[in-house]
Design a protein around this nucleic acid. Structure first.
Length: 274
DNA sequence: ATGGTGGGCCACCCA
């Protein structure tokens, strides 16, 4: 009994549906969480997802920017999307499913697209960076207050922060670059403690190993230069963290035709009794 | 130190 879950910042779901189809054919995720879908709910390619076996869709889109969705082979028992920072942005959606690979009880999956934060890592002069920090604070407050990560929960998404030294191509060079500054990493760690969440990717792949899920479009030879960052994450509540038996980062997806700048991160959960 | 490339969409916003 297994459940395979994937997260991917797709950077326009309409433009890149053919890549979604290719990825799903190869990796067979039961649940696919996408960020930056960049279309209204009415423009979402729902029939294409149904055609490739994802009959159950939870969509929180908006015109031109942001947008998240969860496509599932399993029935969706409940859908919630929460607004952060009173901005009206579509940056979160959560579903509840039943999967005996993970738990006898219902499991909630949260899909986040955290603000990128602009270029200047100073909240006093850069409102986008201030928004990013407020968003993370609000996530942590909500998780603590509502005990979001207490049990049977998973959180995935483009969190736009690479917390570990080996989550970036050059730790020292990126200390003042938004996505790897100490102030953001501290905020992200507070979110992790607020769950409390376990980083199941780093449970399976030790911190000594460099791991990236994003390479800039501005790097002409992304693979040989390999100036990547690990911005995309999968965390779980502690009670299910040991059930994540396999982690894959689909690096080759960055080399596909007209790629996203992010690649899928995939976790497979296996129940103790098989 | 700078600027490089993409997507949405029609003047620039965003990453």
């Amino acid at each position: 009994m297994t459940l395979t879950l994937a997260t991917w910042n797709i950077n326009s779901v309409r433009l890149r549906f053919p890549l979604v189809e290719k990825f799903c054919a190869e990796s067979r995720p039961d649940i696919l969480c996408l960020q930056e879908t960049k279309c209204r709910d009415s423009e979402f390619p729902s029939s294409d997802f149904r055609r490739i076996g994802y009959e159950h869709l939870a969509i929180n889109g908006q015109k031109g920017y942001h947008g998240v969705c969860i496509a599932s082979r399993l029935p969706i028992l409940n859908v919630v999307n929460r607004e952060f920072c009173g901005m009206g942005d579509s940056r979160h959606i959560a579903i509840t499913i039943q999967s005996s690979a993970v738990s006898a009880d219902p499991v909630t999956i949260h899909n986040f697209y955290v603000p990128a934060g602009g270029d200047e890592p100073d909240p006093k002069i850069n409102p986008k960076f201030a928004h990013k920090l407020s968003f993370l604070d609000e996530m942590a407050d909500w998780m603590r207050r509502d005990r979001i990560g207490a049990s049977n929960s998973i959180i995935v998404g483009d969190l736009n922060i690479a917390p570990l030294e080996t989550d970036v191509w050059n730790h020292k060079a990126l200390l003042k670059i938004v996505s790897h500054t100490p102030v953001e990493v501290e905020r992200l760690n507070q979110v992790m403690q607020a769950g409390p969440w376990a980083d199941i990717v780093r449970k399976r792949i030790p911190p000594e190993v460099r791991l990236f899920s994003w390479w800039s479009y501005r790097s002409p030879d992304w693979s040989t230069a390999d100036k990547g960052r690990r911005l995309d994450h999968i965390w779980t509540s502690e009670n299910i963290s040991t059930l994540a038996t396999d982690i894959k980062i689909i690096r080759e997806a960055r080399g596909w035709e007209r790629p996203s700048d992010h690649v899928p991160v995939v976790a497979t959960f296996t129940s103790v009794k098989s």
